[in-house]
Design a binder for these strands. Structure first.
Lengths: 273, 273
DNA sequence: GCTTGACCTTGACGCAGGGTCAGGGCTGCA
DNA sequence: TGCAGCCCTGACCCTGCGTCAAGGTCAAGC
């Protein structure tokens, strides 16, 4: 008769595994000797080797229990299912590998390359880091929410940022980020923002109209909130804009219905955070 | 401000996962509103998306926590380690696939093909199922213990089983399996076993001597025990053999030292279970 | 007889990554 | 005011064991 460790060593598994198989009902509990030790016979070795063989083939223990007493048909079906699972797990791992390879290559992954390029370009052009960060975070959220519309939106942003007038406006917004609510430069800034938006609405490009309503109202509200959190003067700026007939920021709109309603989408695409 | 389910939906994870990340210290606990609900800002969305991105790349959560604040060098090292782990897991799965493919193809796996063929041949030759089963179980244990010596041992067994005299002896052992200890046919059987063993010792083939002492004494004892368990008449048979100067069964030996000691290994190779 | 070390027992916690309940509070809408 | 649908904490569940705790047993050496 064998002790548990002898049994385990014959079958090439650990003592702990044997007790685990007892607990799971895979291997019947053997009789005990007078001191309470489990005592195994050769049949237990064979059964344990069968269990180990299945387990090493990647069969979950719950399945092993069934397969030990299964007929050929169920056995084949179960094996088939296990193989499908293994293939799926291999596919998962391979996807993971390509993802971490891209991470290792320096890609941020939370942001597609086109957006990374945009953010980098902002830094090149001398935008304050604060502004760059909130812009980056906004695009992370947009990319997570509506990834398929990101390229179109990014194209517009790239064009906007290369436009000297608009770039000047952005830079000035960035510089006024930390000003107090009563800063005397704010009304003039609001005027310039409104002037830009109205010009954009007036000459609404045909090819930009495809953008439509790319992001949900919820997300727009969230982005506006993030803007307010990072820019102390934002509430005052918003009030100044409302006095000039515009409301919101990410998706800025007229407070009163506009005659040419089709231009709204174009206005949103120009959100100058 | 966002509720936990809004946050989760923006980042594309479950509410439970968000709380899990809080518990693991991956995502800082946000402030609560007056009713105790967690309230998140946009920065939390971005952080959660970063966590999800790493987690989806197969990075363990413990590593994610480090990587969120890691510099480039540690990041690269960690990524490298994760990739190694993923490769190892893929290799494991692929091994598992080949193993279950072999299982599906009908191979027993607990027994190499050469042993399966031997067991099948026993059935063809009309050996009683009881005898076949204990033989099979013995070989399972031997294959698990000393797989590299199995082919040589199997070659001997194949030759033995095709020898008409020895096959007749085996068949008679099988038929007497269930006889009582006082069965009158047992002494004659013991005589034939001894006659065979002594003949085998006398003409010890040169090419068989390589087998030497293939299995450990422990395993031999276990196999003998299994034999006794399946054959009620075994104790009586053993006593009869001892009266004739032989002890044991799997590794049968002379009770008194034999003049030509070199023949012992040959005797063992002929174990006629 | 005593110690020592190796073995045995049960019970419990731990791991990743959450799923799923239970039992209750809060909110918003009709 | 009632109801649906959120939210909260706490706790147990899954896999396949590893590992520790606290104690009983056994064989060997002195």
């Amino acid at each position: 008769m064998l002790t548990i460790s002898q049994l385990a060593s014959y079958a090439g598994v650990t003592v702990r595994a044997v007790r685990h198989y007892h607990a799971k009902g895979l291997l019947p509990e053997p009789g005990r000797d007078q001191s309470g030790y489990r005592r195994y016979d050769a049949a237990a070795v064979v059964e344990l080797i069968r269990i180990r063989t299945l387990a090493e083939a990647g069969v979950p223990l719950a399945r092993v229990r069934e397969l030990l007493v299964a007929g050929e048909a169920e056995f084949a079906a179960a094996v088939d299912e296990v193989d499908r699972r293994l293939r799926a797990e291999i596919r998962d791992r391979q996807r993971h590998r390509t993802r971490i390879a891209r991470l290792a290559a320096g890609e941020s992954l939370v942001l597609p390359p086109v957006a990374v390029a945009y953010v980098d370009r902002m830094r090149e052009l001398g935008f304050p880091e604060r502004l760059v960060e909130i812009e980056r975070d906004s695009w992370i959220m947009i990319a997570a929410q509506v990834p398929e519309q990101l390229p179109a939106m990014m194209a517009i942003k790239h064009r906007q940022i290369e436009d000297p007038t608009l770039r000047r406006l952005y830079l000035d917004v960035g510089e006024l980020a930390d000003c107090t609510a009563d800063d005397p430069r704010l009304p003039a800034l609001a005027d310039r923002v409104v002037a830009f938006i109205e010009a954009a609405v007036a000459q609404a490009d045909v090819d930009d109209d495809a953008a439509g309503q790319p992001v949900s109202d919820d997300l727009v509200a969230l982005l506006d909130e993030a803007f307010v959190e990072h820019f102390p003067c934002a509430p005052r700026l918003f009030r100044l804009l409302e006095q000039r007939g515009w409301t919101g920021w990410t998706n800025i709109r007229r407070t009163c219905p506009e005659p040419a309603g089709a231009a709204l989408g174009r206005a949103q695409a120009s959100r100058p955070e």
